[in-house]
Amino acid sequence: MNQLISIENVSFRYDDQKQFALKDVNLKVYEGEWLAIVGHNGSGKSTLAKMLNGLHFPESGTVRVGEYLLSEETVWDIRSKIGMVFQNPDNQFVGTTVEDDVAFGLENHGVPHLQMVERVIHSLDRVQMGEFLNQEPHHLSGGQKQRVAIASVVALEPDIIILDEATSMLDPKGRQEVLKTINEIKKDRNLTVISITHDLEEAAQADRMVVLNQGEVYKEGLPKEIFRLEDDLIALGLDVPFTLKLAKALKKNGFNSEKRYLVEEDLVKDLWTYHLNK
């Protein structure tokens, strides 16, 4: 896999704080992967996301995105490669209609009008929001708003999308709709996705996970490897996916499986098989 982002020995602290928000962080991100960065509040995950987008610069160490080393001279080149979807979609709306909102970033990038119209329609269709073209954003549901925010980013055709707690304000249905949309776009365009989250059920869907604690990388690995550290995660103020907790409880009642269920459908399938064989 091609390395797309390299973070080497990065430390950072805010002006009014003595403690480091990030401390000697080393991290690689590869083209086409979904990386989930998890941690409790204050672990440094949102600071790291902002640094990747050039909103912060490291106090020490280096950040490289593609061919660009992060600096004041290269920050706009790096931002052209990265799109960010934030926690509250209302903070990203600037247009009076869905169409205007998606077109806003394209206008700022000087995209020709005919190409802009095509990209707006295509990106809204990709997130199943094409029929809401002339709708006012404040009339949309939370999940619909977040899908429009994603369309605004997708229209810019970035190499990387960062989801900064992008599903935390949504109900379970809206959360699954947004994650499904991102996953489909990722596969279609070989997009690289970085999900900043404290929701470990969301992180379980990623290709790889990084756990941050007090500004440092605590653990890195595949979701199934990370979730073996169940007690450690709980001690860090995190949780484990509901499917793991349910399977553990069912095991006490005769459901004998050594699998670690990260996907709800897998657990349901095995429970049905277990029921038929009883």
Rank of each mutant, 00 (worst) to 15 (best):
L250W: 05
P137G: 01
R64C: 14
L246M: 10
K81E: 08
V217D: 00
D125V: 08
G32M: 01
E165Y: 04
P172Q: 10
V98L: 04
Q135I: 10
V211S: 04
S257L: 07
N41L: 02
I162T: 03
L124W: 00
E184H: 11
I160R: 09
K278S: 09
D266T: 07
D270E: 15
R208Q: 08
D199W: 09
D199G: 11
K187Q: 12
I7T: 02
I194D: 04
V211P: 03
E99K: 15
L27H: 02
E131K: 15
K186R: 15
L52S: 03
N213M: 00
L124P: 02
P58F: 14
L55S: 08
N134D: 07
V211H: 01
V127K: 03
D101R: 02
G105L: 12
T197G: 07
E107L: 15
T273N: 12
D188Q: 14
K23H: 10
V268E: 06
Y30V: 01
H139M: 14
L222M: 10
V38K: 03
R208Y: 10
L106D: 07
V85I: 15
Y274R: 05
V178E: 09
E99C: 11
W272N: 12
G42T: 02
I37Y: 00
Q17L: 13
F20K: 15
K186V: 04
A103N: 10
L55F: 15
V75K: 12
V193D: 00
A49D: 01
L267P: 02
F255P: 01
I150T: 02
T243C: 09
D24N: 14
Q205L: 14
L52M: 13
V117Q: 11
N9K: 13
W272C: 13
L212Y: 06
E184T: 12
P112N: 06
E165L: 03
E73H: 13
V268R: 12
A103T: 03
R175W: 00
E59R: 09
S71M: 08
E107P: 13
E157T: 10
D270P: 08
H113C: 05
G174N: 05
D77A: 14
D24I: 02
Q115M: 10
D266Q: 14
L267H: 04
E202G: 11
V75D: 01
T192P: 14
E8K: 15
I160M: 05
W76L: 12
S257V: 05
G143C: 11
E264Y: 13
L179K: 03
L236F: 06
A166W: 05
L222N: 09
N91W: 04
Q92C: 13
A204Q: 09
L271E: 04
G44P: 05
S123A: 15
D101I: 05
N183H: 14
Y274N: 08
A249K: 15
